[in-house]
Amino acid sequence: MFERLTHTASKSSAGNHTPEYALGARRSYAFETITRRLVEQPCQHVLDFGGLNQPNLDFFSKFGHRLYSEDLLRSIDTFFTPDEIDRRQIEPSRLEQFLDESLDFPDQSTDAALCWDVLQFVPPVLCGAIVERLFRILAPDAYILAYFHPETGPQKTCAHLCRIVDGKTLMMRPRGAQRMIQPFNNRAIERIFQRFRTVKFFLTRDHLREVIVQR
């Protein structure tokens, strides 16, 4: 899906096909919107749930932000048994324990959460709890950035590693094994973020929905 976009070519007046971006890179308007805010307001506490990588760390360090990084999917795989995930039922105490280990921040203490496409690969019962916890730990006006794949896509696909190229461009490539993907239509996305102030959608040519949610 991302690969399809990365090979998108624009036809110039001379009739030549010119790639819009370097291979694997895509422009993200939602990320650009988040970046604007992060550039304007220094010393923000940013949560990155896609796992640590050098370009993202360099990007946020450059602006003096404090980064918390975690590969949320890997943490879920490590913490929960396959049985818990397959049964789609997790004991509330286990759920709470996981949230306390992964999202243990004071209330309203963080300024942005970069979820990338992670939420779609999280079991539904856990996804709701994570969003609820994010609501608690994000400061008023803080943002969540999340990507949702098209509903009509395959049932299983890979999550993506999102590397920041610059303030408006991301390099996205598949990582890890294929996982079950939870389908989200726009209404479902609005519902999961219903406690938040606004949910803003950016639709792309490949029907990936880039979403910015404001606390």
């Binding site: 308007y29 803003k200 959608f201 792309t204 040519r205």
Partner: peptide, 21 residues
């Protein structure tokens, strides 16, 4: 690095539509 306005007519836009909740 991010000074261009979103949906700038000069730039090819990936956005087909935007909707605010």
């Amino acid at each position: 690095a991010v000074a261009e306005p979103i949906n700038s007519p000069a730039q090819p836009s990936l956005i087909q539509g935007a909707r605010e909740g």
